[in-house]
Design a protein around this nucleic acid. Structure first.
Lengths: 194, 194
DNA sequence: CTTTTATTAGAATATTGATTCTAATATGTC
DNA sequence: GACATATTAGAATCAATATTCTAATAAAAG
């Protein structure tokens, strides 16, 4: 019973993400989110207890979907493929990529005041990524030493991000040229038994 | 003539930078800057026409001093040394590094509304870096092709930044282990005649 | 058809932060 | 010492935003 909803949570969080993408964290006001979807501000608060919940949830959904693809590929065991996944994903989703790679989540939600429940989810997400990398590294290098994990993180995560960040900042889709730069550095760093 | 000043521009911009470093762009309110230096807000406005001028000026000063060292080293012609400079600098100035590497300048100054005069200075700074890299690349690879410049930028700028970013986000000084990661990737990418 | 209630609608409120203003204070100059 | 003025002091204003509140709507249930 009750009136039929005209707006969904998804519409609001999608609008929020595109606002971040276009104008950075400062542009994501509740009024702007409402305006973009054509809803009154009251309706936003009907779906989310606060702006922070909205943003946190939107960020989590996005980060999760990006990360799942990466972990899947990581489990196949080929480091170069995993590294290139990031570049492919960014080229396919440039708008979302800006949200994820150009802004720290601490700045989306004022002063990192994430709702505790969401904070736990974020920690879980980070934990999953971490342990996927640790176990990949063990398998790949045949050793659980920390320096190998560090190396894997650098080669498979940090380098690909570095390769696309500049383009995203200038609002361009990364060129295909970055594939070979990422491949070369990744191959150089990831030889078994270094 | 007139009363003797108790506060300097430098005190204010230094306070501003440390506030950014500790709490991100949102933490740099004019009141916070004043409080940190012990000055009344009026005195801040006596030195700077606006918060944006203050932040822009502070950012420029910092970016300039970092960049000058890098360009000097670049002109000596050794790519690995130039790449390692960034790591050394960050290890020596972790607080300042957070300001420079963890936040886009567009977010320090609301919506990138930089005062026009300062915007020109920022463009000059970026131009200097760019042309230093272009001419390094020409000398090093013996060719002015764009793909070589891209490669140099990636190896000498983007990779070192990637190597330190994670530590800075977690508020740690990058370990010495990153030196070898940066060196290895840089050497792999920068062989003459690739 | 009436009742119930989830939802829309958007106005009212409260808070935070930048900027401006008025007054008080020193300091160098005459 | 009196004057002129740069500076300190901090209160008063103004604007932007998140959040709350009150009323109007529309759909479902009986």
């Amino acid at each position: 019973m009750g009136r039929k909803p005209r707006f969904t949570k998804d519409q609001f969080s999608t609008a929020a993400l595109s606002l971040v993408s276009e104008g950075g964290p400062k542009a994501v006001t509740v009024a702007a989110i409402a305006a973009r979807t054509g809803a009154p501000v009251g309706s936003v608060y009907h779906r989310f207890p606060s702006r922070e919940h909205l943003l946190a949830e939107a960020w989590l959904r996005l980060a999760g979907s990006f990360q799942r693809g990466f972990i899947d590929l990581l489990e196949k065991g080929d480091p170069v493929e995993a590294a290139l996944y990031t570049v492919r994903w960014v080229r396919r989703h440039p708008g979302e990529a800006k949200v994820l790679l150009l802004h720290r989540k601490e700045e989306l939600v004022a002063g990192g005041n994430w709702p505790p429940e969401v904070r736990r989810q974020a920690a879980d997400l980070a934990g999953e990524l971490r342990s996927a990398l640790v176990s990949f590294s063990k398998r790949f290098f045949g050793s659980p030493e920390k320096r190998f994990t560090r190396r894997s993180v650098f080669a498979l995560v940090d380098i690909p991000l570095a390769a696309v960040r500049r383009s995203l900042e200038e609002d361009r889709v990364p060129s295909t040229a970055v594939y070979s730069l990422v491949r070369e550095s990744c191959e150089a760093l990831m030889r078994r038994m270094p």
